[in-house]
Design a protein around this nucleic acid. Structure first.
Lengths: 141, 141
DNA sequence: ACCGTAAGCTTCAAGCTTGAAAGATTCAAG
DNA sequence: CTTGAATCTTTCAAGCTTGAAGCTTACGGT
């Protein structure tokens, strides 16, 4: 069960690279989001709000805790980008709906996000290979 | 300069995978750190404190702002795991030195971190390929 | 020696994130 | 129907992270 030392060290380096790239992706998002007055968390929420959905669904899409979604959605609601409507069939849930302003800003955001992608350095073939490897790594368990 | 829509979508998916894997790595760290009463940030600091170094050096190694290092090091110092000594030649700087308890806990931490690596699913060959690709992606700028 | 700029560290405000706890509502089993 | 477990959301405390501002000290040019 004990791995050779060289392999342990290789894995650590790999972790560093993954985290580094993830950081770059996050920085890119933050930079683009700032252009339209959003933080990166708010931008993620707006990006994932593809249509009306509940808090849970959004949290799921954002890969965060529901309590965090509450916090971020509060900000977006205060900016008039979306509204919390009562859910049509479940009185426990809220249905998030973009306002017109929210929809417009989302369009703008999606455009901005396609510019200067952090992965632009890789060819489509390399991207495909990377995708396959990451898929295998993520779907470990 | 405009990329085809399919490629934009592929890049977005890739970003999601990278962030997801990075999250898994972070979760693994947090879980292991919790076993010895540390948060993940504290564990990162202790892991990177390979020997006496300044705050700046540590912040660099942790890939974070110096102000953040101040915050995290405060916690570790309060737990008696390290001390801030005056730097021998630069009176502006502090020299961080692990206490004996800090050194012992660090050993334990390093052991824990090698267990159940989030990348264990990949063979050494795959890891090497991944490493190469990530290297290219990160070194874009 | 003097001065301006830069570096090292800290403090602060603002925002993000998690996990636990609590209130409201749903749903299924009796 | 009633009860109990599960779900949806929010609140709160604690911790992480960044960026700006400020203090002290270092260093290069004059």
């Amino acid at each position: 069960m004990s791995s050779p030392k060289a392999q342990v060290s290789a894995e650590r380096a790999l972790c560093g690279l993954v985290t580094g790239l993830s950081r770059q992706i996050g920085d890119h998002l933050r930079e683009r989001a700032a252009m339209i007055g959003l933080t990166s968390a708010q931008a993620t929420a707006l990006r994932e709000l593809t249509g009306p959905m509940t808090m849970s669904e959004l949290a799921e899409r954002m890969s965060c805790e529901p309590s965090n979604a509450t916090f971020v959605i509060d900000k977006l609601e205060r900016q008039g980008l979306l509204e919390r409507h009562p859910h049509p069939t479940d009185r426990r849930a809220k249905q998030l709906v973009r306002t017109e302003a929210g929809t417009e800003l989302r369009e703008r955001l999606l455009e901005l996000l396609t510019e200067d992608s952090p992965l632009a350095e890789l060819s489509p073939q390399e991207q495909a290979m990377l995708h396959a490897l990451l898929d295998r790594a993520v779907t470990k368990h």
